[in-house]
Simulated assay, not measured.
Amino acid sequence: MNFEHLIQINDPQNPLVPTMTREQLWEGLVLRAEQPQLFVLGLDSCTILSREGNRLERELHYGHATVRDHVTLTPGVSVRYDILATEEHVGGSLTMTIEEPDDSQLFLRFEYRTTLPAAVTDDERQTSEIVKSAYRESDIDTVRLIRQFVLGLNGPGALPH
């Protein structure tokens, strides 16, 4: 199953939405890669197993389940998560790419590529839509949390360390 969507970060038509710079958004994406437990519900801990240049190898712990992934950072542009498939977990990738069509607009594109088969039956299509909706909600939450951390909307200071 492949799925992608776009979230608008800055809305020049809505002065109530705090403006973020590309650099602030990037800081938030790096924070999500290095401290995912701040963003991912149900994630107990994350161990960074190795760090080489712009690439991280991580181990994510969800209760008794462990997932390994590789994170590739393209500074100021994108973060790609490659999840290793196991017998218990579906593999795939998520790429978050910053898009800035002009000085007043900023977007974050989410692209999912999974090993889940394409939906054929009505039940499979319904399941696929539920998964896509969950991805979308998680991504909206990610942007909300980046806003809070980067813009200091949840108290004094900005990014947690």
Results as ranks from 00 to 15, higher is better:
R113M: 03
Q105I: 13
P75T: 06
E57D: 05
H64G: 06
H61P: 03
I130A: 05
E137M: 02
G28A: 02
T115W: 14
I98E: 04
A65S: 04
T121K: 04
P156K: 07
T47A: 02
F107M: 12
E87W: 09
G155P: 13
H161K: 14
E111Y: 12
A85M: 06
E4W: 12
E57H: 06
E99F: 10
R144W: 15
E27I: 05
N2T: 14
E57V: 13
G63M: 13
H89V: 06
T47S: 02
N14Y: 10
C46D: 00
T19N: 05
M96T: 09
L108C: 09
N10W: 10
G92C: 09
F3C: 10
G92A: 09
L29D: 06
L84M: 01
N2E: 14
L6E: 12
Q35V: 10
G53P: 11
T21A: 06
I130G: 02
T115E: 15
S78I: 15
E100P: 14
D123L: 15
T95Y: 15
I7N: 05
L16C: 01
I146Y: 12
P101E: 07
I9K: 01
N10L: 13
G155M: 14
E4P: 06
L38Y: 14
A33C: 09
V77T: 12
E34K: 07
G91M: 08
V40A: 00
G76F: 13
G91I: 07
H70T: 15
L43H: 01
V150W: 11
D103Y: 05
Y135D: 06
T47F: 00
T47K: 02
T21I: 12
V120A: 05
H64E: 08
E99P: 07
G155C: 11
D122W: 10
V90N: 07
S138R: 04
D44H: 08
Y135L: 04
V150Q: 07
R68N: 01
V120Q: 06
H5S: 03
P36K: 01
R113W: 11
H61K: 01
P117I: 04
G42I: 04
F110Q: 00
S78E: 14
D141R: 08
T127E: 14
L159N: 02
D102F: 14
H61Y: 00
A85E: 03
N2V: 15
T142C: 09
F107V: 05
F110D: 00
D102E: 05
E100A: 15
N154E: 11
E27Y: 10
L49T: 01
S78F: 15
G155A: 08
N14W: 10
A33M: 07
V90R: 03
E23F: 14
P101R: 08
Y62M: 02
R32L: 03
R22D: 03
T72E: 07
N154C: 12
A119N: 01
A118C: 09
A85R: 09
R125P: 09
